[in-house]
Amino acid sequence: MKTIRLYLHYVSINVRCIMQYKTSFLLSAIGQFLVSFNVFLGVFFMFQRFSKVEGFTYSEVLLCFSVVLLEFALAEMIARGFDTFSGMVKSGEFDRVLVRPQNEILQVLGSKFELTRIGRILQAVVMFAYGIVKSNVVWSVSKVCTLLFMLIGGTVVFTALFFIYAALCFFTLDGLEFMNVFTDGARELGKYPLSIYGKKMLLFTTFVIPYALIQYYPLLYILGRQTSIVYMVLPLAACWFFIPALLLWKYGVRCYQSSGS
């Protein structure tokens, strides 16, 4: 309870800081919106030419894309401190974290709350609404639950990736851009249901990095193509991915304390 209160305190101070620069905040938010709007336009114009892709219609693709975008933006908003962790290590700011009597993860999470991602979230919500109206999904309690599970699972998986990135910063600060393959890359892949990329990709995203568990399988359930309850709870199962990420982070902190760089 105390932890949550402290976290909210962090969030509130972050928001107050951002609001000191309202124009800049607004522009960044618009920028976030435009970047993902471009991606959306890409999908839109592809469907001007093609009516379907591997059995999925435009509105179904939008549904899937918007959920992934929403998950990604949420994770970015919450775990931005981990996403920009290299700066914290470089500036020595992490030393400050270590001389305070609170959990390191909480402090790093609190160090940055990226409200500008609201632009992306807005974009995702609009797309999602459009997708819902246009697709013929018959909504039920279980489907709404599935959606909720997708949001939780997806945010957890993306956050875990940011954790891994941050943990690697303890070992090297060089060339970590490659982690974008997994974060931005996943968002890029997630535009379309993962099955369109072929069997191998589906296997990889099922068993190695569980993107498919938060995107493809629950989508099938929502679209009514699968009715088994397993498809509904798979997004929650994807949370397993957080465990190795957490262990790596803990190991990284230990190494930092022994190397100090």
């Binding site: 592809m46 093609f50 591997e54 059995g55 060339g175 970590l176 851009e177 393959v181 990329y197």
Partner: peptide, 26 residues
């Protein structure tokens, strides 16, 4: 940084091409 960039670009290119293939198959 360049090496990391190259890896990223491979992944990106791969994703794009797989996507185009899917549309082509359809």
């Amino acid at each position: 940084a360049a090496l990391a960039g190259i890896i990223t670009q491979f992944a990106w290119g791969g994703i794009q091409i797989m996507m185009f293939h899917a549309f082509y198959r359809t």
